[in-house]
Design a protein around this nucleic acid. Structure first.
Lengths: 76, 76
DNA sequence: CATGAATAATCCCGTTCGGGAATAATAATG
DNA sequence: CATTATTATTCCCGAACGGGATTATTCATG
C-alpha cells in the first residue's frame, strides 16, 4: 500500500471539522482562535505557533506536544 | 507504572541531544536555530513556531507535522 | 572545594505571527 | 443557473518570537 504516512495537521483538522459539521468560524470560536488561522492551518502553513495549533487540536481531544512522529528512517 | 505518557518535546530533544554528545550550541548550529531557542524548547516553552521546532527535530529524523498524538480519551 | 564548561536568564531589535474586518473567489444548494 | 454560504485573500496593527550577545547559575570533574 502506497504512502500511508498519516495526515498532515491541516487535513486532520479539516477532516475532523467537517466530520463534526463545523464551519471554520465555529471551530475558531470553539478553539479561541481566529478564522484566518484555521484557514491557514488547514492549508498547511508551516510557521504557526505550537500553542495555537494545540488550542485547535484540543477541540478534538488531541495534542501535538507529546511525541515526535517519525517521518523517515531510524526507529524510535 | 505511573504516568507514562510519552515525553514532551523538550525532554525528547534534550535526551536525544545528550545521547548524541551535543551541546545546545552544536545542536542549534546543526538545526539552524539559535542557542536560546534550543534552551527554551527543551524547557517546554509552549509558544514556539512549529517550523522552527521541526528544524530541530529534523536533526533527529523526526517531525511534528504529521499526526496528532492523543492525550486523553477518544480513540483515533 | 575550586575551576571551567554548559545552561539559563536578560536585553535589544528586526521579523512575523495572529486577530479582526472587508472583499474576492469558490462551493454548495435549490 | 441563480443565490447564498463557506472559504480564501488582503489590509492594518499590536504582540510575541527568535537571533545574538552578555551575564548569572548550575553542573561536571578533578
Amino acid at each position: 500500500m502506497g504512502q500511508e504516512f498519516g495526515e498532515t495537521i491541516g487535513t486532520f483538522v479539516r477532516d475532523r471539522r467537517k466530520a463534526g459539521q463545523m464551519t471554520q468560524r465555529e471551530l475558531g470560536e470553539l478553539a479561541g482562535v481566529g478564522t484566518r488561522f484555521v484557514s491557514e492551518l488547514e492549508r498547511g502553513k508551516p510557521s504557526v505557533r505550537l500553542s495555537v495549533v494545540n488550542k485547535v487540536l484540543a477541540v478534538f481531544g488531541k495534542s501535538l506536544g507529546i511525541v515526535a512522529a517519525l517521518r523517515q528512517d531510524e526507529q524510535p
